[in-house]
Design a protein around this nucleic acid. Structure first.
Length: 110
DNA sequence: GGGTGGGCTTGTA
DNA sequence: TTACAAGCCCACC
């Protein structure tokens, strides 16, 4: 991330790059920024406190297990948003997580 | 200005 | 499936 950018900013910016109908995992974001999957917790913190709700598709971030994880507005809400994008959700997990899983690698277009 | 605790996680046994 | 441990950042005192 840029030196002037903070961890939170980096997370938000990265999540903003997630296209519609796609999702990513906390670990992916954490690895892209800190290179440590354990930073996933910090990623959740950044999203939980996203200063730009609506601009930051924090609902497109799920757990590596496919579970939608949590959501400040409610897990049910997160599921509804994902389904609204065409993502299949079963119970609290993404069925085609492997298909909608967005990868930052190879997206270096901008 | 310094120290501690909690959180939208992950991986292994 | 359940329980435990590791590492990261922000907020509070």
């Amino acid at each position: 991330m840029d030196e002037g950018e903070t961890f939170q900013e980096a997370v938000l910016k990265l999540v903003m790059r997630i296209p519609k109908g796609r999702v990513t995992t906390y670990g992916r974001v954490a690895t892209e920024i800190k290179g440590s999957v354990h930073a996933a917790r910090a990623v959740g913190q950044a999203l939980a406190k996203n200063p730009h709700p609506g601009v930051i598709p924090c609902h497109r971030v799920v757990r590596s297990d496919g579970d939608v994880g949590g959501y400040s507005g409610g897990i049910a809400k997160k599921i509804e948003l994902l389904r609204a994008e065409g993502i299949e959700i079963e119970g609290r997990r993404v069925k085609n997580i492997n298909e909608v899983l967005f990868q930052f690698s190879g997206v270096g277009t901008g």
